[in-house]
Design a protein around this nucleic acid. Structure first.
Lengths: 217, 217
DNA sequence: GAGCATAGAGAACGAACGTTCTCCATGCAA
DNA sequence: TTGCATGGAGAACGTTCGTTCTCTATGCTC
């Protein structure tokens, strides 16, 4: 049920999928669905939670296969490369959900923020384990982020290759720059990703906005 | 009218804005709107086209202010930094539109793809003018892409700083690696997308599609 | 078999949407 | 002033949606 909902929401967008389609695709009656979940919105949130879990596990598993701290960082992009060539790939489900509902559903926005913060925190741990400068972490996160949207819109998986190459350069620069005591390489596989409560950043400063009431362009 | 539509679509999502709200906010009657545009979908496409123009002009203008090829590449991230702190910033309008309607509206998907391809081609020109290895271009594009979604979801502008720092490292690596005859540094301000009017009072950058004939606003 | 709880199919409901239509006020030409 | 074209306000229409309700078939307990 949640799996079916995820498949439909992800492939077509949340608002484009009706409860009736969900019923048809999942085989669960309308009554059954409303017995499990109080509303469509709650299904959306459950789907996001589930997707976060799958992503976290998927990345973690791929990272665990790598042996060196450097390869563990690069494993993220290998994971992305595999994902991007999936026929059903259509970008990051959280970015998509945020774009569609983020400004109209605080819960969706919150889920997306938590998901991204969790990933960024995970990358930061891997960076620390590699003994690289902390500034490397947001750079690698941004690369992963950009690769996902680029691949989604372009419809090709090239972005993973480019992001990986860029990551190699950034990693090498950050490790040679600050290396020093080639730190945390000791802590091998341990650190699992975990959603950390981050700074609940506000929005940015001001900016002018024109209000209503103009004529045709 | 298109400006108002853009503001509403961008800030709340396309499907969350009704024609009635558009009427109220723009001051144009329903009849007037349907006299100008055959449907809401056509308004969406016009808005995207317009947004693409503003983005192209905005980035071009910022790049034109820089003097060295290296600074012209970095100017992209300065432009992003300014944009991200705008109160109304909510990510890239094309990514958002693609996430919401890309799989249900081929025209929207096409506009998004064209917009991204246009930006990537622009970056490639700047990279060539800097005499750097061509592989640098997609890396810088991905950084810009990732910065936009990261900033949107996080609600802070930090991503622009991180992306800029990463870009510096990648640029330096690409220019020292392949440099050779330190090529195109000759072409100073020349290239770029029609560096025209600055960021017109409107909202942030983005929007719209580029090429192939659609009707005028 | 009788009685009953469960749950599925799908009708029903109220709201919202995109689009079209009706009505009316306005401004201009003669 | 009369006649007419223009365009706004907003009602109307047909559809879709999320959610609830009705009806009925099924299977279980005694």
């Amino acid at each position: 049920m949640l799996q079916t909902a995820d498949r439909l929401f992800y492939s077509r967008g949340i608002q484009s999928v009706s409860m009736d389609e969900l019923r048809l695709a999942s085989g669960v009656s309308l009554k059954g669905m409303y017995a499990q979940f109080p509303s469509k919105a709650s299904i959306v949130l459950e789907v996001l939670d589930r997707r976060h879990r799958l992503w976290t596990e998927g990345v973690g598993a791929r990272v665990a296969l790598a042996t060196t701290p450097r390869d563990r960082l690069l494993a993220i992009y290998d994971y992305l490369a595999d994902w991007f060539v999936d026929d059903l790939f259509r970008g990051c489900g959280f970015i998509n959900a945020f774009a569609e509902l983020g400004s109209v559903s605080p819960e969706v926005a919150h889920r997306a923020r938590e998901h991204k913060e969790s990933f960024q925190a995970y990358v930061a741990i891997l960076v620390a384990e590699a003994g690289a400068a902390p500034a490397l972490a947001p750079q690698l996160s941004i690369l992963a982020e950009g690769a996902q949207t680029t691949a989604a819109i372009a419809g090709t998986g090239d972005a993973a290759i480019h992001a990986r190459l860029a990551a190699e350069i950034l990693i090498d620069a950050a490790m040679s720059a600050d290396d020093g005591p080639s730190a945390g390489a000791g802590a091998s596989a341990g650190a699992g990703p975990s959603a950390g409560a981050g700074p609940s950043a506000d929005n940015g400063p001001p900016a002018g906005a024109a209000l209503a009431g103009e004529r045709a362009a």
